[in-house]
Each structure stands twice: as structure tokens, then as C-alpha cells.
């Protein structure tokens, strides 16, 4: 079979449209994921047993099951549960929710271990000055934990960007899906998917450079001696 390498270039503008959607889904899920992650990280460290239990259940479920299954549960399962008719474009909502919940679970673990990596003496010093639990967290622990979590958080974002390709299965026109459509019309999987791979590679490399840069910027007052 003839390979039409030229198609890689011809498809590039269309694939970039898909890459734009990929980035949008990644950014949305990372933003919501960070909020969820912080909430459930604090939940896992809470005094209250019930809160701890709920937080662990959330984290365990979304880390312990495949993202694809989670997407299906939310895209196909949830509408059945509430027996409502699918709104137009429900796949976008379902996709964003699934990615965010998944990202939130991983981020919660990253935040939790970041918070726990801060010397307990810091909390004691803050409390001995009369700060409340909340103030100690807000002013002393979280700013330090944030620096610790930048590298693993960066890895999680990169993983999110790649995993968003699973959204192709529910027909969201992100990069992978666009590649699939073009391949279906042209029967040229090699050049098309190679170009898809290249675009993912460029995006993940750019993201990891951004993470490195942030890490350096934050190093100013450095925690470690």
C-alpha cells in the first residue's frame, strides 16, 4: 500500500483544530482538578472521620478504575440513572466532568503528600503563635507545600493532556478524534497518526518546559538548605 506522506502536512491545519480542543479540555480539567484536589486533600487530613472516609473513597475510586470506564459511567450511565434525555452536546459536559474528577483524585494525593512533607514543627510554630488550624494551613503550610508539589503536579497535567485522547471514544472532536476521522476518509493511518503523535509530543514538551520554569521561579526562598 502506498503511503502518502504529504497527507501529514495537508491534515495539519485540521489536526491543529483538534489540538485546540484537546488543550481546552486539559486546561478545564486541570483547573477543576486542582480545586477538587485541594478540597479532598484537606478532607483526607481532616479531624472528622466521616470527611476522611468520603475523601478516601473518592480518591480510591477515581485512581483505582480506568478513566475510560469513568467516561462511560458519566456519559452513558448517569443519564440512565436520572433518566433524562441527553441534551445536545452532553458529551462535552460528560467528558469535562470525567476528566476533572479523575484529575482531582490524582491531584488530591499529590497535595496530601505535599502537605505531609512539610515538617510538623512548622505547624507547631504557627499554632504556638496563636494561629488557628486554618491560618496555619493558609499562611504557613500550603505556600511551602505548593513548591513541593509543582513537579508531580506538572507530571499529572502532562498525563491529563495525553489521557484526554480517550475523549475520542465519545466523539469529542479533540486531536485524536480528528485524526481518526481523517484516517477514515483517507485510509492513511501512518502519516496521520504520526502527525497526531508529533503534535502531542510538542504539547507535552512545552508543558514540561513550563513546569521547569515555574519550579525555578519558585526556588527563590527555597525550603531546603
Amino acid at each position: 500500500m502506498n503511503i502518502n506522506w504529504g497527507l501529514a502536512l495537508d491534515s495539519f491545519p485540521y489536526l491543529m483544530q483538534g489540538a485546540k480542543i484537546t488543550l481546552q479540555f486539559t486546561i478545564v480539567s486541570v483547573l477543576f482538578g486542582m480545586v477538587l484536589g485541594l478540597i479532598f486533600a484537606l478532607g483526607k487530613l481532616a479531624q472528622n472521620k466521616l470527611i476522611r472516609y468520603i475523601s478516601s473513597a473518592y480518591v480510591d475510586f477515581f485512581r483505582g478504575t480506568p478513566l475510560l470506564v469513568q467516561i462511560f459511567l458519566i456519559y452513558f450511565g448517569v443519564p440512565q440513572l436520572f433518566s433524562f434525555t441527553l441534551p445536545d452536546n452532553y458529551q462535552y459536559i460528560a467528558g469535562a466532568i470525567a476528566l476533572s474528577l479523575n484529575c482531582g483524585a490524582y491531584t488530591a494525593e499529590i497535595f496530601r503528600s505535599g502537605i505531609q512533607s512539610i515538617d510538623y514543627g512548622q505547624t507547631e510554630a504557627a499554632r504556638s503563635l496563636g494561629m488557628s488550624h486554618f491560618q496555619a494551613m493558609r499562611y504557613i503550610i500550603l505556600p511551602q507545600a505548593f513548591k513541593v508539589v509543582v513537579p508531580p503536579l506538572g507530571n499529572e497535567f502532562i498525563a491529563m493532556l495525553k489521557d484526554s485522547s480517550l475523549l475520542a471514544i465519545i466523539a469529542i472532536e479533540e486531536l485524536m478524534y480528528t485524526g481518526k476521522i481523517i484516517t477514515g476518509r483517507t485510509f492513511q493511518p501512518m502519516p496521520i497518526y504520526l502527525m497526531v503523535a508529533l503534535i502531542y509530543l510538542v504539547m507535552t514538551m512545552a508543558l514540561s518546559m513550563l513546569v521547569n520554569y515555574t519550579e525555578k521561579r519558585l526556588g527563590k526562598s527555597d525550603i531546603r538548605k
Binding site: 514543627g121 512548622q122 504556638s128 491560618q135 511551602q144 525550603i223
Partner: peptide
Amino acid sequence: GMVFQRFNLFPHMTALENVALAPQIV
């Protein structure tokens, strides 16, 4: 007030910020 064996200064703050934080927020 309490002073610890291992100082426990807040490493992400300058000396002045270390001293001035609690009076502000507490």
C-alpha cells in the same frame, strides 16, 4: 511565646515577615 530547639522559622518568609505575620493575622 515558645522558642524551639530547631528554630522552626517559616522558610518561605523573610526575617521581618516571620516576625510580623502573627501580629497581623492573630
